[in-house]
């Protein structure tokens, strides 16, 4: 096994292209578990930790460009106002030690359906910035990035440069069910984002399908009902029946399995409850913000 340690982004992309057998490692919170448990033995490790560009974030035209190597701890500290959903999700990632090392880019790279960052990225309409030495940069919407269980849209010569997330134009919420009150992998997770600027609702579902996914029908349904009732303008109360109907539609978008962490039926049920509650909290925040 080789250890490749580029110090610039260009060098990283070159090494990625030259060594298809290399496994990129950032915070190490997924990769090292696989190594320690003897699940993977890649030909090389491609350490992205020395590439300074990856550890930066900045605002750009209403979007936050979050370098792939920014750890969760910094998302929590720096971006609670601009990316509240992602910051809430980041707070639920593993332990404080994990949040200091683990990165949103790493979450995307692993593409586990249980990754905590995915639902808020989906709800916010984030775009993944991918790069290769040969073809330069391409942008892939988060919703198209996840292809299957732990599979994503990266080509063998590509790396994740950043994720572009629209700064929140309205309230966002994130909920995650685990069977312990800390340091737990999601049994199911849900994120929602209100986009009052365009009368839209965003959603993201975690741990309840082969990939993280949106609930498009639920989004359209809720946005439409809010529009029809003039609620975006009146900022009136969100009817309980509407919140519940939204929850049912979110659950309907999932296709979970039974596993050691929870049953498929429970995942559907909990999604409906979380979506109902999250939508209500987000809406209440929207009302208060008036």
């Amino acid at each position: 096994m080789d250890f490749l340690q580029p110090t610039t982004w260009a060098e990283a992309l070159t090494l990625r292209a030259e060594r298809p057998d290399a496994l990129p490692i950032a915070g190490g919170t997924d990769v090292m578990v696989d190594l320690n448990f003897d699940r993977r033995r890649p030909g090389a490790l491609l350490d992205l930790g020395r590439v300074a560009e990856l550890r930066e974030w900045g605002a750009d035209d209403g979007r936050i460009r979050l370098g792939a190597g920014v750890p969760y701890a910094r998302v929590i500290e720096d971006l609670g106002a601009q990316l509240p959903g992602l910051a809430m999700a980041s707070r639920t990632v593993g332990s404080p030690q994990i949040r200091i090392r683990g990165t949103v880019g790493g979450n995307l790279g692993s593409a586990s359906p249980a990754g905590d960052a995915h639902p808020p990225l989906l709800a916010a309409g984030a775009v993944v910035e991918i790069a290769s030495a040969a073809r330069g940069v391409r942008l892939v919407p988060a919703a198209e990035f996840y292809l299957g269980v732990k599979r994503n849209a990266l080509e063998p010569d590509e790396l994740i440069a950043a994720v572009l997330v629209p700064a929140a134009a309205g309230p966002q919420q994130f909920c995650k069910v685990g069977t312990r009150n800390a340091m737990v992998i999601a049994v199911s997770a849900f994120a929602c984002a209100l986009h009052p600027d365009r009368g839209a609702v965003g959603t993201g579902i975690g741990s309840a399908a082969p990939t993280p996914r949106r609930a498009p029908e639920a989004e359209t349904f809720l946005a439409g009902e809010l529009e029809a009732a003039g609620l975006w303008e009146s900022r009136g109360e969100l009817p309980e029946t509407l919140a519940a109907a939204f929850g049912e539609r979110v659950a309907a978008a999932a296709s979970p399995i039974d596993d050691v962490r929870g049953s498929a039926a429970y995942r559907l049920h909990s999604l409906a409850v979380m979506a109902r509650r999250a939508a209500t909290w987000a809406w209440n925040d929207y009302r208060k913000a008036a």
Binding site: F3, I25, G27, G28, T29, V31, M32, V33, L35, N36, L45, D47, S95, P96, Q97, I98, I100, R101
Partner: peptide, 8 residues
Amino acid sequence: PVCACLVA
């Protein structure tokens, strides 16, 4: 503070 087991 980090988990040394997860640092290559």
